[in-house]
């Protein structure tokens, strides 16, 4: 199983470490032509404006949409969630526009309001350490989207078929259960 972590910008090494811990082979990918050979793709945390712009610049967005059209799993954390979304509150520009969700950026405030807490994540864990850094949340979901976790009534993790997204950063913990859940999605899609 070959998992790629989109390595244009952001916390790439952390995802690779977690995917390996969960038993996969993981590599950083920067070029469009590297994507078709992958079985699954992770879009890491970082700045969504930076990652989004660099994806478009070199046609990586088109390649990832094609990847998704084949039903191959994609997992986005934080900025990755924003990049996956069909709608971003307060802006017209979207990036991949794959997941039927509306996201609100920087929804919990600035860095001094960033926090960590324990949350239940459906299908993953009754208690998972969730690290939120200038995090977004999901304001609305389409009918085919399953809500996996909420914090104070706000949706912070969701799945739509082969697409998985969390507003928090499982890659900043030592708990690989969310990554293991994603690898199971990859196994089932193969």
């Amino acid at each position: 199983m070959n998992i790629g972590v989109l390595a244009l910008q952001g916390a790439v090494a952390e995802h690779i470490r977690m995917l390996e811990k969960a038993g996969a082979r993981a590599i950083p990918v920067k070029r469009a032509e590297e994507i078709p050979a992958l079985d699954g793709l992770v879009i890491p945390g970082g700045e969504s404006t930076t990652i989004g712009r660099l994806m478009k610049k070199y046609g990586i967005d088109e390649e990832v949409r094609e990847f998704s059209a084949q039903g191959k799993p994609i997992f986005g954390t934080c900025a990755g969630l924003i990049v996956l979304a069909k709608r971003i509150a307060g802006q017209d520009e979207t990036y991949l526009g794959l997941m039927d969700i509306t996201v609100e950026r920087n929804a919990f405030g600035r860095q001094r309001e960033s926090f960590e807490t324990d949350l239940p994540v459906a299908g993953v864990a009754d208690r998972f350490r969730a690290v939120f850094i200038r995090a977004p949340y999901i304001r609305e979901v389409g009918e085919n989207v399953e809500v996996l976790s909420k914090f104070q009534d706000r949706i912070v993790a969701a799945r739509q078929g082969h697409l998985l997204a969390t507003a928090f950063h499982p890659e900043l913990t030592d708990d690989e259960r969310v990554h293991a859940y994603f690898l199971q999605m990859v196994n089932e899609s193969a």
Binding site: Q9, G10, A13, G46, Q111, R112, E116, D118, L172
Partner: peptide
């Protein structure tokens, strides 16, 4: 319990800036 300003949250913010300008 919700914790702000932890080492992980502070260092994690910088991790998210990696590869950037």
């Amino acid at each position: 319990m919700v914790e702000v300003g932890t080492t992980r949250v502070k260092r994690g913010m910088a991790e998210m800036q990696k590869g950037g300008v």
